[in-house]
Amino acid sequence: MDTFQSARRGFLLQMSGAAGAVWIAGQWPGILAAAQHAHAAAKADPAPAFEVLTHEEAKEIEALSSAIIPSDELPGAREAGVVYFIDRALKTFARDAKPVYEQGLADLRQMTGEMFPGVERFSSATPDQQEKLLAKLEQESQSGGRQGGRMGGTMGMSFAGLLRFHTLAGFLVDPEGGGNRDYAGWKVIGRDPAHSFSPPFGFYDKDYPGWQPASPETENK
């Protein structure tokens, strides 16, 4: 079952209900076009082959992203196809970051050998060793690069910073953005992939009686 398509279809169906009826008449062709476009994009992912990363690089990046979001009873970075998202990122919005990745992977390899003689790569290190390597990587990245504001950019971010950011983005972005395969990431955080919702939304608004002016007791406090 294609969850992406069904979520989008559910949205379209709900839109044809009372609230959307007036509006949808005029907008239907546009909505449909957008939905089809998005669906095509989602279908094209995961890419059958890596476009930017070498096989070796991909293996390391997959191991790194899996260490950031491991797989357990719930999906992790691996199941969400994060490495494919990063491959695509390095061809599109993060083109400029390719040298940072190359240098970062080379540095990591050296660091791995220094910290754990005999271990050649991050991907072949034990989980415990990987933990220590990530800590070291992050510690070294503190000196350089800063992240923009809440909605800011990634200019000047270090390898560790970029890798973490791209892993989280690939895990949690709407699948239209080329990650979060089969909503793996949203399963973990508990975000329903539907495109529209009706109240009550959560636990605390379930029994809300409707808005009332403050009672005299609270007035006099």
Binding site: G30, A33, A34, G153, M155, A169, D174, G177, G178
Partner: peptide
């Protein structure tokens, strides 16, 4: 409306709706 998405990469990284630094 047909151009708008839920894609955080488009919106926050590619600055689809805002000034591009």
């Amino acid at each position: 409306e047909a151009d708008f998405t839920h894609n955080e990469v488009e919106v926050f990284i590619n600055h689809a709706l805002t000034n591009n630094p």
